[in-house]
Amino acid sequence: MSIPNRKVVISAAGGPEVVSVQDSELPAPKKGEVRVKLLYSVFGGSDINMRNGTYPMQEKAPLTTGYVSVGVVDLNGKDSHKLQPGDLVCCLSVYGGQQYYTNLPEPFIVPVPKGIRLDQAAAMVLDWTTAYGMAFRTAKLQKGHKVFVHGLSGSVGNALLQLCKIQGAEVYGTASESQFDALRAQGAHPFVYTNKDWIQAMKDMGGAHAVFDPLGFESFDESWSILSRDNGHLIGYGSNGASLNGKPRSQAAAYADIAKLMARKLVPFCPFNASFFYVDRTQSTFVPELLKCFDLQVKGEVDVKIKKTISLEEVPQMHKDWTKTKGVGTVVVKLPYADEYLGGR
C-alpha cells in the first residue's frame, strides 16, 4: 500500500521559484526495493544544477532531489530480504533523499555502522567518498607532495584537505577570505580565488603534484598552469562553477569542459596528467571506500565538517541562499523523524 509522504519537488528547469515542498503519496516498494524512513540527506551543487536542468544525464522535471539518503528500513518489497525493519542504512540515491520516505533499490543500500554521527555519515556518502577516491586512488598522494584544492571550505574540498593532510601532503587552495582562519587552523595555506595571486605563488614553489578543480571552464586552464613537471596531475570533478557564480551552462558545455580537460594529456611529450573523477554507486570501489571513510570517522581520525543543518521545509530557501551560505563543510537536510530516532538511542 502507498503511504502519505512529503517531499521537495522541482517542477521544471528554472530559478528557485520552481522548488517547493509538497504532500504526496509514496507507492509501496516494488520487487527488489526497500522503503526507508529518512533521517538525513544533503544539499549541494548537484541540487542547483538539477534545478537548472544542466546536471549530466539527469531525469527530467518534475523530480525530487536528494543525492544521499540516510534512514531506517521501514518495509521490504518482494524478494528483498537482506535488511530488516529498523536497520540503519544509507544509499547514494542520486534522487529522492529530500522527502520523508523513499523506495531504494536493495543492491545499493549500505548498512551504517554503530557509533557514527548520522549527519556526518550523510556527508560521507557522496562528499567524502569523492574526496577519498581522488586523493588515494587517482592522485596517489604521498608524503611531501604539494596539492592545490579549489574550494577548501566546501564539502568535498574540506574532505580533500583532511585526507591529504593524513597522507602527509602540503595543502594549498582557494577559499573565501572569511574562512582563512579556520582553514589555517586545519593546516591549509588558503588564497582568494579571484585575485589570481595563487597562480604565481604555486609556480614559484615549483607547482603542485595534484590540483583538484570542481569549477571547470577557464579554471581548468589556470589549474593546468600550476602543475609540477614532476608528474603533475589535474583532477576535475563536479563541474559546479555555474552553481556558484549563478550563470548556468548547458549540459553540452559541461561535456565540452570535460573533453577539453581529457584532451590535454594526449599532447605528445606532455609532462602532466589529467582526469575527470566521479562517484557512481555501481562502481566496485564505491562501497569499500565509503566504509573506509566511515571507519576514519568512527576512529576520530577526521572531523567531518557540517556547514549548516536545514529542515526539509527550508530547502526552497537554500536554493536562493546557496551562494551566500558561509562556513565549512556539507549542508545537511535533517528530516523530522531524526529527532525521534536519535532520542530513542
Rank of each mutant, 00 (worst) to 15 (best):
V42F: 00
I109Q: 06
F43A: 00
K7I: 04
L234C: 02
M1V: 07
S155L: 01
N103R: 11
G154K: 06
I166F: 08
A182E: 12
V94L: 08
T323G: 01
A121W: 12
H81P: 06
N240S: 12
H189M: 04
Q251N: 04
V147R: 09
V89G: 05
P111M: 04
V211N: 07
Y193P: 05
N273S: 14
S80C: 10
P16S: 07
N49K: 15
D321F: 06
L152P: 09
G115F: 11
N158C: 04
E222L: 11
I226P: 03
M50T: 13
T64I: 13
D181R: 11
A188M: 08
L92H: 15
T138H: 05
V302D: 08
G187I: 10
S219T: 13
G77R: 12
L266Y: 15
S178Q: 11
F286P: 08
I116S: 02
L63P: 13
F294W: 14
Q283G: 05
N49M: 15
K334P: 14
F294D: 08
T129E: 07
K165C: 03
G133K: 14
V8P: 11
L244V: 12
Q251S: 11
A135C: 12
D23L: 00
S250Y: 10
G187T: 13
T309M: 01
S24Q: 08
Y278D: 06
G246V: 05
F269A: 11
Y255P: 07
Y67Q: 08
G344M: 10
L234M: 05
G71I: 01
A13Q: 09
Q84E: 13
P271V: 06
M134I: 02
P27C: 02
G97P: 12
K146H: 09
D295V: 03
M262D: 03
L118Y: 15
S41F: 03
S239T: 07
K140C: 09
I3P: 13
T309C: 01
I199L: 10
K165Q: 13
A135G: 11
R51Y: 13
H189I: 11
Y55G: 00
P248H: 09
P336N: 05
E17H: 13
Y341Q: 04
M134N: 11
L290S: 09
Y193D: 02
S93P: 14
